[in-house]
Amino acid sequence: MELKGRDLIAYRAARFLKDGDMVNLGIGMPTKVADFLPEGVEIFLQSENGFIGIGPTPSPEEWDKDVVNAGGQPSSILPGGACFDSCMSFGLIRGGHVDATILGALEVDQEGNLANWIIPGKMVPGMGGGMDLVAGANTVIVMTDHCTKKGEPKILKKCTLPLTAAHEVDYIVTELCVLHYNGEGLVLTELAPGVTVDEVIARTEAKLIIPETIGCMI
């Protein structure tokens, strides 16, 4: 199977996860990560509306009206799952019990800042649990197309949109590369097959730190 585009992003993001991790996947593209887990890695998915153990999407006949995921869509709870209230749920998130959160971005920058909850004047959905997740999860992994649909950079020197959290991003995974925020800047740690350093630099507004050796995403 040739991995590219969002499949490649999901494949690589899944490789950050370790067996036994509790993980929170954001709405949309991040849910694909569950399809690309390495052999032998079992993770526990948290749904911040109140349970651990997200199972497969049920058929309409099997759906339990009291079980939805954090996107409000019908979901199921695996054997061994646990239900709780919102204080417990976000206590787990802020308290260091969620090993990783994987979520999308509108913008991300070289200071580890993430903006993904509002476009003033256009979109007012609210931050939901996003701010708590990015501030609280042990590892914050952003998965995003490298540029916007118009080809404009999403990985910037400085976010222009209101932030979700400041300096909290650990990794950015795109179809071109993996970037690691090391507390000082963004390090280009891996490239997608066939992609060059120059190509990444050309499509990134942020200043990148280029180490001597760069790995491959696959």
């Binding site: 911040e48 209230d85 919102s86 204080c87 749920s89 976000f90 206590g91 998130i93 802020r94 931050m127 939901g128 649990g129 996003g130 701010m131 708590d132 501030a135 609280g136 959290a165 400041a166």
Partner: peptide, 25 residues
């Protein structure tokens, strides 16, 4: 933020004057 909303309500019902959270910094 959702976790903050839950905690602010918990404070209101449990006699606490507030909560300190890293969320939103």
């Amino acid at each position: 933020p959702q976790g903050t909303l839950a905690e602010r309500i918990r404070c209101g019902g449990t006699g606490l004057g507030g909560v300190l959270t890293p969320t939103g910094i």
